[in-house]
């Protein structure tokens, strides 16, 4: 099937357009949510009580690898949407699976990082700093986990039903979500890790 309209498939029905707009509004709410978490982190970041501070425990090399993994996954999810617009079901599935695998790799490294911190004596109950740190990072990590499960279920639907008006708009929305998590991570990398290492 070749499309004669200029709008992409995921925007074809009015309901899809509303779903996508609704998701953008939801992302607006998510921005507020993460902004609040960041602001609270900035309030508490120096309140380490008797526990370790950021620069005592952060391992920049691991965090850098996590960053590259997540950034790459954002790129591959873009490739998946590109395949979707070309009605290439196989390409869509492959690139999305690659995206999810990268996401899972990121999670694996992040969990290891958390275990390392706990061994260093920084648990979520240690201080104001660790509470804010683990909650900010944990909220992001929970979003990634949710995204992996959600997108897996969407891929089952694409596999069964092909690329339709409905499945395409769902996949497109999930890719917005994935990019958003990447953006949040860039802020975490910059304002939690880099800032924590130098200040």
């Amino acid at each position: 099937m070749t499309s004669h309209t200029t709008t992409p498939l995921e925007y074809n029905t009015e309901q899809s357009q509303m779903n996508i707009l609704g998701f953008w509004v939801f992302l607006g709410a998510e921005i507020v949510l993460f902004s609040t978490l960041f602001a609270s982190y900035f309030v508490l970041e120096h309140n380490t009580a008797d526990g370790p501070a950021g620069q005592d425990i952060f391992i920049l090399k691991d965090v850098l690898i996590e960053t590259f993994i997540l950034l790459t996954s954002s790129f591959t999810s873009g490739l998946a949407i590109h395949s979707m617009r070309n009605h290439d079901k196989k390409g869509l599935l492959i690139w999305m699976i690659v995206t999810l695998l990268l996401g899972a790799g990121f999670l694996y490294m992040e969990i290891n990082e958390f275990i390392h911190y706990v061994h260093e004596g920084a648990t979520i109950q240690t201080s104001g700093f660790t509470a804010a740190f683990f909650t900010l990072l944990g909220t992001h990590g929970a979003h990634v986990t949710f995204g992996i499960i959600w997108i897996s279920l969407l891929l089952v639907q694409v596999y069964r039903r092909g690329i339709t008006e409905k499945t395409s708009s769902k996949l497109f929305i999930s890719s917005l979500y994935w990019h958003f998590l990447d953006v949040v991570w860039i802020f975490i990398f910059t304002f939690v890790y880099l800032k924590g290492m130098v200040m």
């Binding site: 508490l44 309140n47 009580a49 240690t126 201080s127 104001g128 804010a132």
Partner: peptide, 8 residues
Amino acid sequence: HFFTVAAG
């Protein structure tokens, strides 16, 4: 300890 002063 978000809101307890003793632990920061």
